[in-house]
């Protein structure tokens, strides 16, 4: 078997529960982490996970069970307090996708800026530019400052840019809850075409069983800071539904 494209070894991450904690800078600098306190909260701990190239993984779990944290760790925008995360390919993170966009700059300038921040070269962007604009359906507002965009338009533009990154690993975190149905369907089609080659590794966080089953073969169920179940997506969803007493209902009405 190949080396896994994503591997988590005994990974744990710890957040502080209370806002009013007394942070000791001295502890931070000397030990790299604050001294242990009672208010600690581990979204997960001792997690081991190996993902092979081309696997499609659906992540389920109730709110606050660490789904987004897991994706952030794989995207490299959070670092574990214990264990280690290794990712052996480029990642296109569709997490908080409007994040890199600058509100003062126009849509056109933002397309270039964000694509470059994610590693594309200007020449590559020139090539993709028309496709990005067409997909986002914001063609007539190309020179409008990003801050004047509606939230739906922002997500559309952001999805268009980030989904063009053409990276081998795709992380999707319920980003498509915004946007109208027609655009969402376009996004699903886009995700499917990205997956069509069989080389793209997908991580999808969703509450919709329909979407999970549509895009993913393997499922991971997070509960109480551990991987409660890991296996074929149908089995994992079934287990989740039994645990949460939602068997025979769709997990939620919201899309992805």
């Amino acid at each position: 078997m190949d080396e896994p494209v994503i591997s988590l070894r005994d990974v744990g991450i710890c957040f502080s529960k209370n806002r009013k904690r007394r942070r000791s800078l001295r502890d931070l600098v000397l030990h790299g982490s604050p001294a242990p306190k009672s208010g600690e909260f581990w979204p997960f701990r001792h997690v081991n996970l190996d993902i092979q190239r081309g696997e499609t993984i659906g992540v389920v779990g109730r709110n606050g069970q660490g789904k987004s944290t897991l994706l952030s760790l794989i995207a490299g925008v959070l670092l574990p307090d214990e264990g280690r995360v290794t990712v052996r390919d480029g990642v296109a993170p569709l997490i908080a996708i409007t994040g890199g966009f600058e509100s003062e700059l126009s849509a056109r300038e933002n397309i270039y800026l964000v694509s470059q921040l994610h590693g594309m070269t200007p020449a590559e962007i020139d090539e993709e530019f028309d496709d990005i604009v067409e997909f986002s359906e914001v063609g007539e507002f190309l020179d409008t400052p990003f801050k004047h965009f509606s939230s739906g338009m922002k997500v559309r533009l952001a999805f268009s840019v980030v989904s063009r990154l053409d990276e081998p690993i795709l992380l999707i975190d319920e980003v498509l809850a915004v946007g109208d149905k027609a655009f969402r369907n376009k996004c699903y089609a886009r995700i499917e075409s990205l997956l069509a080659g069989g080389d793209t590794t997908l991580f999808l966080v969703s509450h919709s069983a329909t979407h999970l089953k549509r895009f993913c073969k393997r499922g991971i169920y997070l509960l109480d800071g551990e991987i409660r179940a890991d296996g074929p997506i149908d089995d994992v969803i079934r287990q989740y539904e039994i645990d949460t007493d939602t068997l025979d209902e769709d997990l939620a009405d919201s899309d992805i």
């Binding site: 995360v85 390919d89 990276e167």
Partner: peptide, 14 residues
């Protein structure tokens, strides 16, 4: 550098 001439992958190995 990844397939597309970009920077891909990382590790948090100490």
């Amino acid at each position: 550098v990844s397939l597309h001439g970009r920077i891909g992958g990382f590790t948090t190995d100490p």
